[in-house]
Simulated scan of single mutants.
Amino acid sequence: MRLFRPASLWVIACLLVLGPAGAGRALAAEPTLADAASAYDRGEHLRAQRLLKPLALRGDVAAQHLLAIMYAEGQGVPKDAEEALRWLRLSAEKGFAPSQYNLGVRYADGLDVEQDDGQAVAWFRRAADQGHAEAAYNLGVMYASGRGLAQDFTEAASWYERAARQGVADAQYNLGFSYANGFGVARDPAKAYAWLSAAARGFGEMDPDGRSLALDAREEVAKLLSPDDQAAAAQAAATPDPAATIQSAEDPGHRLHM
């Protein structure tokens, strides 16, 4: 199975979408989060920092998140892991899912904090409960591996499915693997084939190793399916939720080694 990976330590693109509505817009002439993010995207880090700081001090969680990025990377400010963590925690504690996810990554990997799987699980759960796909995937891995909580393959599969439906290729692969072997779900080669197909497409050229793993696993599952079942599973793989649109195949009665 694909293990925990912090697909991206920082989440920047969603700042304007997930930031509080109207943040930093009390006065029309005042700089906004959009101004700061635009400056950051242009590489004008010093200007971005100057625009972000007052927004962050006023409690704008998205501004706090981006300011944490800049301190962590030394962009427009001296690199300062402690200051980065402070702003990240402020944002996370106020409910900003990308910050909660990234704080979970830090605890899981021991990045600038003492490694703590329990804390990682708690932060991943808070972000996942808000619909953060990568957090849901990582929470599934924590359940599958028994990190920070009791090992539970049923819970793992449930969280993988949440992330898989949002297009996380690692989650699609692990969910396909789970269906192939009956880990936390009823063994079902047709659903396994469908999710593994979705994973291969999701990995694409950005992750050739992942794509190869998914295709190899799908080839093993295909041995248990008729050509018609394979065609139906491949068609289902193109939908957001293959498991809901595919007819279950007969349990093959043995596990696959992938």
Results as ranks from 00 to 15, higher is better:
L66C: 06
G59T: 00
V105T: 09
R218C: 11
L66S: 00
V121D: 01
Y143R: 08
V105L: 06
F177E: 03
G140W: 11
S99P: 02
L196H: 04
R5V: 09
D216N: 15
L225V: 02
S91E: 03
E219K: 07
G176S: 10
G210H: 09
R25G: 02
Q115V: 02
G110T: 00
Y137N: 13
V221C: 07
A136H: 07
A128N: 01
N174Q: 05
S91V: 01
I12Y: 05
E205L: 14
P78W: 01
A48I: 10
L149K: 07
V77I: 04
A68G: 15
D251T: 13
V141N: 13
G184H: 05
Q235G: 02
D41T: 12
T32Y: 00
S99L: 01
R86T: 14
A144E: 05
A34N: 08
S158T: 15
L175K: 07
N138Y: 00
Y160H: 03
E134N: 01
L213Y: 10
T239W: 05
E44H: 14
E219L: 08
A190C: 15
A72D: 15
F183M: 12
P6Q: 04
L3A: 14
L46E: 15
L196N: 05
Q172D: 09
K191E: 02
R47A: 10
K94S: 08
S248D: 13
A23V: 15
S212P: 00
M1H: 13
K79G: 11
S212N: 12
R255S: 13
L213N: 11
L9F: 15
F203W: 10
R201Y: 08
H254N: 10
L51W: 06
G182F: 10
V141C: 15
G146N: 08
G146A: 07
Q151F: 05
Q230C: 10
T32I: 02
L103F: 08
N181C: 05
S178D: 14
G167M: 01
A128T: 02
Q151S: 12
A237C: 06
V17T: 15
A200C: 10
S197N: 15
D112E: 13
A7R: 14
G118V: 14
E114S: 09
L27V: 11
W159L: 08
A156G: 09
A236S: 10
G74R: 05
D229L: 04
L33H: 05
L27Y: 13
H132V: 04
L16P: 04
L55T: 06
E44A: 15
R106N: 09
P208A: 08
A199D: 03
V168K: 07
A56P: 06
G131V: 11
N181L: 02
F4K: 03
A186S: 14
G204D: 02
G182M: 08
A222N: 01
Y137V: 07
A62I: 00
M206L: 13
T239N: 08
V77S: 10
A68N: 06
G19N: 08
E134H: 12
M142K: 09
D80L: 07
I69D: 06
D207H: 12
Y173V: 08
L18H: 12
